[in-house]
Structure formats: structure tokens, C-alpha cells
Design a protein around this nucleic acid. Structure first.
Ligand SMILES: Nc1nc2c(ncn2[C@H]2C[C@H](O)[C@@H](COP(=O)(O)OP(=O)(O)OP(=O)(O)O)O2)c(=O)[nH]1
Ligand SMILES: [Mg+2]
Ligand SMILES: [Mg+2]
Ligand SMILES: [Zn+2]
Length: 575
DNA sequence: GCCGTTTTCGGCCCGACTGTTTTCAGTCG
């Protein structure tokens, strides 16, 4: 059983315990353990074999024994027992916004409601309003929440790129409000997470009520979820939930820090404050002995006051960044300016929209030292892939272009398909003639875990291969990652000195932050590539950089931060 | 259920909004 599945069981268990009315700190222990497990750099299976699971913070003897039970049997007794007690539909009911464990339990006990559909019916038949602390408005709210959830195909999360676009539109609009001095993006969007649950904004205003009514009164607002004197929440077209918090200028830094999160990062900081005799909230730091509140207008001041190095938002996930910042040992995160070239680009030779010349000009414009043209191979499922003959012509064409261009090196490459049996689309004889060989899986994605893993591993064992592209194959809104033992892939990359890609396409972001961090920890080199199919895509590098930064990646960990000389020596080709 | 160089018991982050509330529980951020 892998970490993801173990974490899911703990999360599910936490929900069930909440419903049962268990101690909230016990349920939090499960949720907390699940989150920690998801972010682990190592499989629990391995930790169990080589060390002690109990050493993981937030996991004690009891949870360790449950993890071991899962590793051995696929489940744990307490989980199965609790599953038998609680109807499956209850968890779904608790996932409706506004309905928590207490309300779900009330409906279950007083109305016998066990599924979302039964809850809908109860609301329509006005049976809810007769319950204690319930009324007409609650019935309406529940029906609206259910309707909204039904519409939503994305399980409530949106790709970063879409959310960023909407957020920018709203920020620009709020900037026009005379009662708003400044607007900033916060939440997971500011932390550059691959997908975001909602859009979180903060605004400085001396007139909070006016600012909020400006926000809730925007023309495109589909629904006002809540609207108070300090914050409001709306639904924006596309099923975007948008939260706005208003703050005074002098607490801007405190609020930005708070609303950027993550929640777990905040809790960690608040515990740290407590240990120093303070209390931390979104307005400032209160000295518990005097009651004095110090407000922070900048995040930098706040972190400094807590004795921490400034933390880039991308790191604020409580995955060790607070400890590192306390010791002054934060990584020097990679930046866009460190990128010296793009190693995954398609031209009109296969399914790209631009000629090689156009691509090279665009690369020069971006200050790159090199650019690899990596058109598709001919296997089925990939558009206009290059035959053996055309690949040779391709190499010749690039040779000629290299004579024409000064100051940039064009690398002849391929994105060679890994066929279902693990064989590559080109012979070794052909691959050998290329400057750079990317391999990737494009079809036959429903193979089982064992087959898929073996398929990719055998490709990585080919001596001519340099990079594995989009290693898990996920595409937002289309398909989840295929079933592959990513640990094995990382280990194989390490053993064979291969590079794993962080694909920067905003619909892929693959490797994601967690897997990229694992690869880095194992000493596997990464490449941040755009997989460009039209020259504008070269700028998608920004999204790949986001993932890399969230993975604690430094320039040295990335192949395409190397200068041309180092790159060529790494690829084993003449400069 | 976890945790601890002052603690092995008694804490566990802290605040805004809603609805039905005459005083606050529940939910969410
Ligand atoms: N201190 C504290 N802060 C919280 C809590 N919940 C949320 N926050 C802060 C940190 C979050 O990043 C921020 C925005 O909340 P969200 O629920 O929108 O979470 P976030 O944006 O991090 O993730 P998301 O992608 O929206 O699911 O508010 C909490 O329970 N305690
Ligand atoms: Mg959010
Ligand atoms: Mg939010
Ligand atoms: Zn590609």
C-alpha cells in the first residue's frame, strides 16, 4: 500500500470519527497524520523496513501500528469496524459546504437521512425547519449547496492557470474601487499550488463595509455566500469561490501572512509564538504578559520578529520550512532567470505550430543559450510523428541551422514514444545520432501498475535516453496520473543517471511538487521543460518554476540551468 | 491521538459569519 492510499484511509477515518462525535483532537490527529504522510519524501513501506514510522512527527505508537496493519493487510481493523457503523452516504453529506458533523448527525438521527438525495428531499419537503436550530434559510442554503456541488465536475478544485486569470480580473476590478487602497492575492494561489480550491484575496481599506459591498456587488457575482464587516465570500462564473478579507494598512503584513497560509504553516507559526510567550493572529503579535499588540505592515517584519528567515510563499506548507528558517537553512530556490534553455519543444515537423526558425528566434528573445527541438516519434496516437527517414532529415536541417545562428545552440532531439511493451520508437542506431533523447508514454495509459512501471523502467535503462517527460501522465480535467510506481521510476533514474522532467504545461505540471521533491532528495536531476507546441508556450516555464520552487528545488538541481558547456558534457555531445 | 530539556497530564491556533439565538454552537477560513 502506498502513502497516498494510507493517507486517504486516515482522512476517511477522521471524517467518520467526527461524525461519531469523537474528541476533535483525536480526529485532528488522523487528519494531521494523513497530511504529513502525503508530503513524505519516502514510502512508509521503506521507512518501516529501515527505521521507525513512530519517529515521524504527529505519528505515535497507535497510528504507527495502524499503518503497519495497512502495509500488511491493506486496511486496519478500527477502520473496517467504523465503516460498518456509518452509512457511506454520510461522508458525502458532510462534504456539502455548510454541513459539518453535527448537522449531518442531526439529520441522520432525527430524519434518518443517509444520502445527499434523501437530504434534498427532506429540505424540499420542509422537514429540516422543524429541527432545533434549523429554519427556512437553512433549507434553502442546503439546496443551493447541493445544486452547486452537482454542477461541479472538478471535485471543487481548479487548475492554477485558470484561477490566476480570474483572480487577476477581480483584482483589477477591485483596484478601481475608491475605498480600496491595495489588493493582493493570498491563499494557495499565492503559494502557487498546482490546483486551488478557491481564490483568496485581501484588500486594504479604511471603509470595510463600502469595500465589501463593492465586492459583493460586482456584476458577474452569481451568489453572495456571506458578507460581513471584515470579510465576504462570493461565487464567480466558472464555479469559482472567492474569499475577500479587508484589513487596515497597519496590519497588512499580518493579514497577508495569515491569509496566504497554509493553514498548517499558520498553526506552526502560532505554536512558535505561544512558545515565546506571544499569541499570533491575522492582526499581529500579542505579548501575553502585557497584552500589547504589535501589528505588522510587512510579512518580512513578522517573520523576522518570530526569529525566522523570510519564507517564500511556495514553501509555506509545514513541510519542514519553519525548522529550516529557524536555523537559517532555507534553500536558494530556483528562479526564472536561472533557466538557460528549453529542452522540450515541438515544431511544424510534428504537431507544433511554429517552424524551427521561429522557435529559435523566440528562444533568442528569451535570452536562452540553447533550445532542443524534440518532435514526436511515429508511433500511433501521436500526431505527424517523424519516421526514421524524416528524423534523419530533421537532424540535417538542425545541423544547417546551427551554422546559420550564432549565440544559440539548437539541439537535435526527439520525444520518443515508449511503446506499450517498453520498446522505443527508434533504434539505438538512430537515437545515438541525436543530441538529446526524451522519452515519454503517450498511449496505452490503462496498463496496470506493474506493466506501466516495467515499461518506463526499461525505457530509462536505454543508454541513449536522457530525459523522461511528464512521468505520471496526468492532465487536469482529462485524466488522473496513470498507475505507476513513481518510487521505482525515481530510483531507476538515479541508478542510470537519467533526468526527470517537470513538465510546465499548466494542464500537466508533471512531476508535481511532491514527486519533484522526492526526486531531488534522491539526487535525481530535474529538467524544467515547457513541451512547447506554439512559441507562446515557452513562457509556460513560469508554471514549471512554480512546481520546482514548491519542491525546494535549487538551480543546481536542474539540467537546463547549466550553461551550454556543462549541458553538452552532461549529454555527452560535442559543444 | 500526539506531545514534552521546566511537564507523562492536560493541553492541542485563533477569529469571522450565520441563523435563530436571548447568548452561542456550528462551520469555515
Ligand atoms: N490560522 C488558521 N488559518 C487558516 C485556517 N484555515 C484557513 N486559514 C488561512 C490559511 C489559508 O491558506 C487561508 C485561505 O484558506 P483556504 O481554505 O482558501 O485554503 P488555501 O487557499 O490554503 O487552500 P485551497 O486551495 O483554497 O484549498 O486562510 C485555520 O484553520 N487556521
Ligand atoms: Mg484558498
Ligand atoms: Mg478560501
Ligand atoms: Zn512533448
Amino acid at each position: 500500500m502506498d502513502n497516498i492510499r494510507i493517507a486517504e484511509k486516515f482522512n476517511h477515518m477522521a471524517k467518520m470519527l467526527e461524525f461519531k462525535g469523537e474528541n476533535q483532537f483525536k480526529t485532528r490527529a488522523y487528519t494531521n497524520a494523513a497530511r504529513t504522510i502525503k508530503g513524505l519524501d519516502e514510502e512508509l513501506q521503506v521507512i518501516h523496513k529501515e527505521g521507525s514510522i513512530e519517529d515521524i512527527p504527529g505519528i505515535g505508537k497507535i497510528l504507527e501500528s495502524k499503518i503497519v496493519e495497512m502495509l500488511e493487510t491493506g486496511t486496519f481493523e478500527a477502520y473496517e469496524k467504523t465503516m460498518d457503523e456509518i452509512p457511506a452516504g454520510i461522508i458525502e453529506i458532510m462534504n456539502i459546504p455548510g454541513i459539518g458533523p453535527k448537522t449531518a448527525r442531526l439529520f441522520y438521527e432525527k430524519l434518518g437521512v443517509q444520502t445527499v438525495d434523501e437530504l434534498s428531499r427532506a429540505a424540499r419537503e420542509h422537514r429540516i425547519r422543524r429541527l432545533p436550530r434549523m429554519g427556512e434559510k437553512q433549507e434553502e442554503k442546503i439546496l443551493r449547496s447541493i445544486a452547486r456541488q452537482k454542477e461541479d465536475k472538478n471535485h471543487g478544485r481548479h487548475p492554477y492557470v485558470l484561477a490566476k486569470e480570474i483572480a487577476t480580473e477581480i483584482v483589477d476590478f477591485l483596484d478601481l474601487c475608491p475605498d480600496i487602497e491595495k489588493v493582493a492575492i493570498a491563499g494557495s494561489l499565492r503559494r502557487k499550488q498546482d490546483t486551488v480550491g478557491d481564490i483568496d484575496l485581501i484588500a486594504i481599506s479604511k471603509e470595510p463595509e463600502k469595500a465589501i459591498s463593492y465586492f459583493t456587488g460586482m456584476e458577474k457575482v452569481e451568489e453572495v455566500l456571506e458578507s460581513g464587516t471584515a470579510k465576504a465570500a462570493i461565487i464567480y462564473p466558472g464555479n469559482f469561490h472567492v474569499d475577500l478579507r479587508i484589513v487596515s494598512r497597519d496590519s497588512y503584513g499580518s493579514m497577508l501572512q495569515h491569509f496566504t497560509g497554509s493553514k498548517e504553516h499558520n498553526i506552526h507559526l502560532r505554536k512558535l509564538a505561544i512558545s515565546k510567550g506571544y499569541s499570533l493572529n491575522e492582526y499581529g503579535l500579542t505579548d501575553e504578559s502585557t497584552g500589547n499588540l504589535t501589528k505588522f505592515s510587512s510579512e518580512e517584519d513578522l517573520y523576522e520578529n518570530l526569529g525566522l528567515e523570510y519564507l517564500p510563499p511556495e514553501l509555506r506548507e509545514d513541510r519542514g520550512e519553519v525548522e529550516a528558517a529557524l536555523r537559517g537553512k532555507l534553500p536558494q530556490l530556483i528562479e526564472r532567470k536561472d533557466i538557460k534553455g528549453d529542452l522540450h519543444v515541438h515544431s511544424t515537423w510534428s504537431d507544433g505550430a511554429n517552424t524551427i526558425e521561429e522557435i529559435v528566434d523566440a528562444a533568442i528573445l528569451r535570452g536562452y543559450e540553447y533550445i532542443a527541438i524534440t518532435d514526436h516519434s511515429h508511433s500511433t496516437g501521436v500526431a505527424n510523428g517523424l519516421s526514421d527517414k524524416r528524423l534523419l532529415e530533421h537532424i540535417n536541417a538542425i545541423d544547417k541551422l546551427n551554422e546559420k545562428y550564432d549565440g544559440i545552440r539548437i539541439l537535435s532531439g526527439t520525444e520518443c514514444d515508449i511503446r506499450a511493451d517498453g520498446k522505443l520508437d527508434y533504434s539505438n542506431n538512430l537515437l545515438e545520432q541525436l543530441d538529446i533523447v526524451i522519452v515519454a508514454v503517450h498511449a496505452g495509459l490503462d496498463q496496470d501498475r506493474k506493466k506501466m512501471t516495467k515499461r518506463i523502467v526499461s525505457a530509462l535503462e536505454n543508454e541513449h535516453v536522457d530525459i523522461l517527460a511528464h512521468p505520471t501522465g496526468r492532465k487536469f480535467g482529462k485524466r488522473p496520473a496513470y498507475d505507476v510506481d513513481i518510487e521505482k521510476v525515481i530510483a531507476t533514474a538515479k541508478d542510470n543517471d537519467k533526468v526527470l522532467e517537470i513538465n510546465s504545461s499548466p494542464w500537466r505540471l508533471d512531476l508535481d511538487d511532491i514527486n519533484a521533491k522526492r526526486a531531488k532528495e534522491r539526487g535525481v536531476m530535474l529538467a524544467i521543460n515547457t513541451d512547447t507546441h506554439a512559441i507562446d508556450h515557452l513562457d509556460n516555464i513560469e508554471f514549471g518554476i512554480n512546481m520546482a520552487r514548491r519542491a525546494w528545488v535549487e538551480p543546481d538541481d536542474v539540467l537546463n540551468t547549466k550553461d551550454l558547456k556543462q549541458l553538452c558534457s552532461k549529454l555527452g555531445i560535442p559543444k
